[in-house]
Amino acid sequence: MRLATRYMLRLARRRWLVRAFRKRRELRPVVDQTAAIGRSAILLLSTVRNERIRLPYFLKYYRDLGVNHFLIVDNGSTDGTREYLAAQPDVSLWHSDASYKRARFGMDWINWLLLRYGHNHWCLTVDPDEFFVYPFCDTRPLRALTDWLDASSIKSFSAMLLDMYPKGPFDLIPYREGQDPIAHAPYFDSGNYVIERNPRFGNLWIQGGPRARMFFADLPERAPALNKIPLVKWQRPYAYVSSTHMLLPRGLNLVYDEWGGEKASGCLLHAKFIHTLVDKAEEEMDRRQHYANSHEYRAYRAGIATQPDLWTKWSERYINWRQLEILGLMSKGNWA
């Protein structure tokens, strides 16, 4: 890489960090239990807005995996999300009424929390509708994975976003609190993902899945990115650039093997398509706080009006991580 390019990326990284530092003033602590974070604790970071119905299962899922502490930013929820989170024993909660969009879709806040609390910890950054699945997750806790990553000198772990959907219109059967959203919407597309390398940041740009197929068939280049690097052994100089799609320094984006082999990777099961999406899509149209001029939500709203069924006869029903491994969506890599 040319020296100039390297310097530009360094500047960009500094800029995100400075931005995160400035945006820290938008965060007001509600419950701060960060003193309880142990030296080797695994942290989970998330931004939420009106996700009350999802939270009980979300917290349980990640507690069972072995997350030690949750660092959550509440962006002006009105449905009791804040009260619910504030009452949890292992959650540190911040509140912000500022613009989600102008905080780069929450990433500035997350970058700040990572900078402040994440140093030398394994940090998992996920949304409340994303469920992390990794090789052997049914028999080995998250700690086994992070120990193995440490021993292998791997600093970041990729997990592609896998959109899950039910059979029939997704607002037909409402999701109930505490229910496993994956059991509620168990289907996914197994093999229609396209990949391009991003020369600037070195990451892969993955698109496809049911959203691309249904809402972006004629505009495939606008389909949402599915590549994610949610698990990182965080160090102060690191910064997320765009959602958790890519990071700086660039080396953290090299989660793929270029010489034919497979590195270990996981999936983020994305339980977006439950009935609350209908209201969300409406609300987002008023707020206009989402990525790329809320293009995605506009497409949903247009699509939702026609009662779409994302299910096709080629849809796979989710069983376990081994199924995803066989289908080639994730890999055990060298871990056995």
């Binding site: 990729s158 997990a159 592609m160 993902y193 990949i195 390398r197 892969l204 993955i206 590549n227 989660v255 793929y256 093997d257 270029e258 010489w259 034919g260 082999g261 497979e262 590195k263 270990a264 990777s265 080639g328 969506l329 994730m330 890999s331 055990k332 890599g333 060298n334 871990w335 056995a336």
Partner: peptide
């Protein structure tokens, strides 16, 4: 066998698979 397979997966991978953690350079696709 189990561990030999793990090493093979890491070094050679599955032919014809392009995914988030396997994106071979030109002519290294195996």
């Amino acid at each position: 066998r189990l561990f030999a397979k793990a090493v093979e997966r890491r070094t050679k991978g599955r032919s014809g698979l392009y995914m988030q953690s396997r994106h071979p350079n030109h002519d290294w696709e195996n």
